[in-house]
Amino acid sequence: MDSQLEAEAFKRIYPEEYFQRFLSEGTRPDGRPLGRARSTTIGFGAVSTADGSALVKIGSTTLLAGIKLEVMTPTAEAPDAGKIAATFEMPPLCSPDARPERRLEETSVVVQQVMNAIESAGLVNTKELLISTGKAAWVAYLDIYCLDADGSLLDAALLAAVAAFADLTLPPVRVNPEGHVLPVLSGAQGGNLRENGDASSEVVTVERRKLTLGAMPWAATIGLYKGHLIVDPTAEEEALLESTVTTILDEAGRLISLFKPGGITAVTTALIQDCVELTRHRARELKQILEESSQEDEDEGDESQ
């Protein structure tokens, strides 16, 4: 009991020395080796009212992404495409630093980087969000909420967004002569559509469909501390780091983003290459986790029907 108290006191008073003691042994306070990310889980369909959603946990970091679809009129420049609008919020419950009146800077950075990754990788083809050329298209409101901020928020946010898009199902709709988009009723009534006197309605889709996703981006945030590369830092570790690099790769190994926003130390070419290698490894892990979780989700879905 005594030594536990001592360790806690030491950690409070000398956080850097505490951290360095672990680093010198090649490990970290939570026991992980420097190159290992925390255990990651993905839960699809966490929000039943959303058209697509996913709950992601990387260690204690918990993020929830939900997609709601609404109808919009396509713009003149892109009459055959919809769009994606993303927001990221950190409600006060996620971290002692988050307060309602003061936006944390992570909120601005994370949402921009997540959108950048999705667009750069070509995850979603906005043309698939079209309902009727020039008249109606879907806008996907992607809302990401941080429920527990324990470091590496960008990694989790991107993973949650990707999983939410994988979970997304576009509902069947029809467009009536006035240009209004109406839902297609399921079951027996759907088949009787023409006999209901709506012969003039344009039936756009009959079945629910999923998006055909393009390349999926996978992110790994790596912290730099006195020459060590620390993969997937926790919030405590992030406070001590000199700078962080978030590398995003797709499954083909293309570089989607290499984001290093300043920081006290600068990186050399060698360190960049090391980060890329570590990210490659992590991307394979994440892809596998997504596929397994997706498979489980399907199995459950089949069972319930």
Binding site: S120, A121, R254, L255, K260
Partner: peptide, 14 residues
Amino acid sequence: EAVVTSTTRGAMAI
């Protein structure tokens, strides 16, 4: 020279 800041848009090979 070492890299202090890096931001990218779009996809490219390493």
